[in-house]
Design a protein around this nucleic acid. Structure first.
Lengths: 343, 343
DNA sequence: CTGAAAGCGCTTACAG
DNA sequence: CTGAAAGCGCTTACAG
């Protein structure tokens, strides 16, 4: 092992005890300004940095927070949350440990092994993760601040958007353009956990349709996870059902992108033959001219991280509050008034 | 602090010393099978997991590796590398700490503060990071395994693709289609560090052009960082120069996407008026029908992580070897023979 | 095969 | 304002 300057080196060089060095460097009271300044100088010269492992032992604080997300593949959304969180965490000297739950079984056990994670991080940030009641229980037992970004999870504080409202905004836009035969693509048929995001968006969609006197047609609803591939499959399914809606509300931009791609493959022009609205304002959505209900995912990550830091600082577990951040309709070129099929 | 079962609890319950528990659980020799099995059982019952911080102190091993990437914004590529790396790292029980170098000045200092990082992680994985000689020096001084994914960095082992060959493949494809006026978009004009990726791709491009008797025209080369926005700007620049190439080789798919978008805005049809080739096979490239020189970025991350684990396991610093992974041309609909402008 | 004990590098009452 | 000392939860020679 190469020389690693430790606290004793600094203490020796400064002619004080390690206790004083520890207090001085961490800004604790009870150190004269002169001494503190001198110690700082020496620490800087020596390039001394306290070992997080060593500091974690007596304090129980690791200086790290975990960001847990499902299936790495789903990509953009989770990375954006993580980027936002990481931004504020790093600025506050915290490390971030990323846990991706790809192989469902294995990794889930690992992540929610309270012992494991509790010894590793001071707080947890979960992104759009379906959780069982037992898992929520385990998280509480961890006795560490937890935030979830995405859905409301009973018993856990979260940062989210109003998904029903999202569904309303998208559908109102389409309805306002005169569309009445509007398909909905979203919802994971394999979801056993009642993950509410897509269902809520669908509720908003259904509400608005009924408000204009249209009963939502089950034949116009197709399931789709939050991926481009699911969007492709969703449109294919609609097409196979022989329904020909004039508009499509996709539960996410990625779903919308896939659906648009598949639609074009069938000779359906967008927006001439089909108007499409997505959700998220994915980084690439503007390239597709995609109209979307935008959310600031990175900001959500930042807010969640900030709340976590606050809880850590105050030592208070934090209320189980739900912070709802605003969304905004961004109209681009994938939507247009109904009945204008002839360009 | 809530009850955290520690090694003493397990030892007490098993009626053995903590030393034996430590050895048994880590699979070290010198423990009878019966004892080991019993200890395992008890540890499982109690949900005991060794504290990484506590274990790190005597061993100097944190069980974590850092994945360092520049500017979070550049997105896809770095996330893909990280996903690949994380996959193998997590499978081997390692945590991954992500460091994004967004605010250049500040974070760079932070990350390359050898003391800081050395006390935090056992190994380092750098993605496409321009490094100064001093930084390479600092990395060596850290005395920890380091791998870089992307460019060859003198003195550091890396996993990369043959960028000159990439340039050749893309250009040969276009030349083979009969194109001779081929633009190149790539290279960061602000780069002070001689980051070789784009320049190498350009070398391959120039080589192939010369081989068919065409002297590369400086007017057909425009700078572009690896972003969609840069691609937009690059095409705009070409357009402003009043050059009208029949094909464009973009240094990355994101650049290509931006360029295609801007081209269409100017009424340039793809591929009728302009053939476009990118590099990477970005997750979304197929949606654009983009012809590209594909690389398996996640695999590169996996390989780099595997090498790191091997170095950690063997204790050997590892050769400064360069692993070159293959690339493959994927032809889609953004390229077509020259001179077929009339559709 | 197993244990007692020192030590890893910090932090934190407790004294002074 | 400052220091001596115990302790955080492990690992690892060293004995036996």
């Amino acid at each position: 092992m190469v020389e690693m300057t430790g606290i004793v080196d600094v203490a020796a060089r400064a002619g004080v005890s390690v206790a004083t060095v520890s207090r001085a460097l961490r800004g604790l009271p009870g150190v004269s300004d002169a001494t503190r300044e001198q110690i700082r100088q020496i620490a800087a010269e020596l390039g001394y940095v306290a070992s997080p492992s060593a500091a974690a032992l007596p304090t129980g604080r690791t200086g790290a927070v975990a960001v847990v997300s499902p299936v790495a593949t789903t990509g953009w959304y989770f990375n954006a949350v993580c980027e936002g969180a990481q931004e504020v965490l790093a600025a506050n000297g915290f490390d971030v440990l990323r846990y991706d739950l790809s192989e469902v079984e294995t990794n889930r056990r690992r992540v929610f092994d309270t012992q494991l994670l509790r010894k590793r991080v001071d707080a947890l940030l979960l992104t759009s993760l379906p959780l069982t009641p037992e898992e929520v229980e385990a998280l509480h037992a961890m006795n560490r601040p937890v935030m979830v970004v995405g859905p409301i999870v009973s018993g856990l504080p979260s940062v989210r958007i109003d998904d029903v409202e999202v569904g309303r905004m998208a559908t109102e836009h389409l309805v306002g353009l005169g569309h009445r035969e509007i398909a909905f693509a979203g919802g994971d048929p394999d979801d056993q956990l009642g993950f509410p995001v897509s269902p809520d968006r669908r509720i908003g969609y259904a509400e608005v349709l009924r408000e204009v006197g249209v009963e939502p047609d089950p034949a116009l609803t197709v399931p789709a996870k939050f991926t481009v591939e699911a969007g492709v499959a969703a449109f294919a399914e609609l097409w196979a059902r022989d329904v020909r809606p004039t508009a499509l509300f996709a539960a996410s931009d990625e779903v919308a992108m896939g659906a648009m791609h598949e639609a074009r493959r069938h000779g359906v022009r967008i927006p001439e033959d089909l108007s499409v609205v997505g959700v998220d304002d994915h980084d690439m959505s503007w390239l597709f001219g995609l109209t979307t209900v935008a959310q600031d995912v990175r900001a959500e990550g930042r807010i969640a991280a900030g709340t976590l830091l606050e809880a850590l600082r105050s030592g208070i577990a934090g209320e189980t509050t739900v912070t709802t951040v605003p969304t905004e309709l961004i109209v681009r070129s994938s939507t247009r008034p109904a009945g204008q099929s002839a360009s």
